[in-house]
Amino acid sequence: MNLELVSKSDYIICLGSMISKDSPKMNDLIIEAIAKNSAEFIYMHPVDDIDVKLYCTQFVKYEVGSEEGILALLLEYFTKDRSDELEEYLSDLDIGYISAESSAGEEEFDEMVEKLLNKTTKTIILGEDLFTHERVANISAMIKAFKEFSDFNIISLSDFILNANDELEDVAELKSYNGTVIYKYASNEDEFVYGSESFSKVAKVSNKDLISLNYGKQSIQRVFKLDKNLQGTIALCGVKADDESFLSQGYRYKQVKIEKVEE
């Protein structure tokens, strides 16, 4: 991973990573690039991270699970000198529908393109959300196409090895993530669940409550902490490296049922 590329970039997209939690070092390099290079920093994620929103130049919030659709939009807006195969693939997609389903407006991508003016060193940072997604095979093929037909440097925060087919598949229908959703991040310091006031109301829990997270037939207990810097109904949960619960498996977002544990 060529971290030096980030500090030298003047246009940076971060997709699929809550960068302040996932990679504080990378986060610092982005801030350095903004300060030194007047870099545009576009942060794309379903979680409103107040800390990152203080310094990003554009925040694109998309629906949980729609990473595949976001990559299709990036292919549409940022690739050039495309192959006939890629051109045909994109022409067959309903970009307006994908944009609406992902809740990432076409006007937001227009704004991203406008920010490219006079930018010379472009980098996209790809996070773990992409590589734990059930559609990772097609996501990998999309990343391969983006690398080939754009002038972006690509940096992955994941150890996942891209072994993609050349053939791109249609974007799958977006699954619903209604109700209370947990987003897990690596942490050796704590295993709390941090949620906003909105999350607290929906889950019917209060600050410092012991809660049960129920996912299918599995259940784990955590202490809930109210975080006024968070918004929406996605809560954050620190997960240790040796965790073997459902939180450590598969996609980083889990739709869970939450119950207060009576002590």
Results as ranks from 00 to 15, higher is better:
152 F>H: 06
254 K>W: 12
58 Q>C: 07
168 L>T: 02
107 E>T: 13
194 Y>L: 13
87 E>F: 03
190 D>L: 09
151 D>I: 09
177 Y>A: 05
10 D>V: 04
126 L>S: 00
76 E>Q: 13
156 S>G: 08
29 L>H: 05
128 E>K: 14
235 A>Y: 03
250 G>N: 10
173 E>W: 02
237 C>W: 00
16 G>Y: 00
254 K>S: 08
32 E>M: 12
199 F>R: 00
182 I>L: 08
253 Y>Q: 09
5 L>G: 08
197 E>L: 13
118 N>Q: 13
138 N>F: 02
11 Y>A: 02
110 D>E: 15
148 E>G: 10
122 K>R: 14
103 S>H: 11
78 F>W: 08
55 Y>N: 12
187 S>F: 10
40 E>K: 04
89 Y>L: 05
12 I>M: 00
91 S>Q: 15
70 I>N: 03
129 D>F: 01
120 T>Q: 14
162 L>D: 01
153 N>L: 10
85 E>G: 07
14 C>N: 14
55 Y>R: 12
167 E>R: 04
242 D>M: 12
161 I>V: 14
225 K>N: 12
141 A>P: 04
146 F>W: 05
81 D>P: 01
186 A>R: 10
230 L>V: 11
204 K>D: 14
140 S>I: 04
198 S>M: 11
140 S>N: 05
71 L>H: 01
170 D>C: 09
62 Y>A: 00
130 L>P: 02
146 F>A: 02
125 I>W: 01
178 N>P: 05
185 Y>L: 08
187 S>L: 10
238 G>D: 07
77 Y>A: 06
94 D>H: 13
5 L>Y: 13
4 E>A: 09
250 G>C: 09
220 I>G: 02
132 T>R: 14
191 E>D: 15
133 H>R: 01
200 S>V: 05
224 F>H: 00
227 D>L: 04
239 V>Y: 08
90 L>F: 09
229 N>T: 15
254 K>V: 03
194 Y>I: 04
118 N>W: 13
46 P>V: 04
241 A>W: 08
79 T>Q: 06
90 L>Q: 03
226 L>E: 11
256 V>N: 05
246 F>V: 03
148 E>Y: 11
67 E>M: 02
244 E>W: 07
148 E>D: 11
70 I>A: 03
184 K>E: 07
236 L>F: 10
206 S>G: 15
108 E>K: 12
164 A>L: 08
33 A>N: 04
234 I>M: 05
89 Y>N: 05
191 E>Q: 14
210 L>N: 11
48 D>Y: 07
144 K>F: 13
49 D>F: 06
122 K>T: 08
173 E>C: 00
71 L>N: 05
184 K>L: 06
185 Y>A: 03
150 S>Q: 07
131 F>I: 00
190 D>T: 13
180 T>C: 15
229 N>L: 10
194 Y>W: 14
184 K>G: 05
134 E>A: 10
158 S>K: 03
105 G>M: 14
46 P>L: 03
177 Y>W: 09
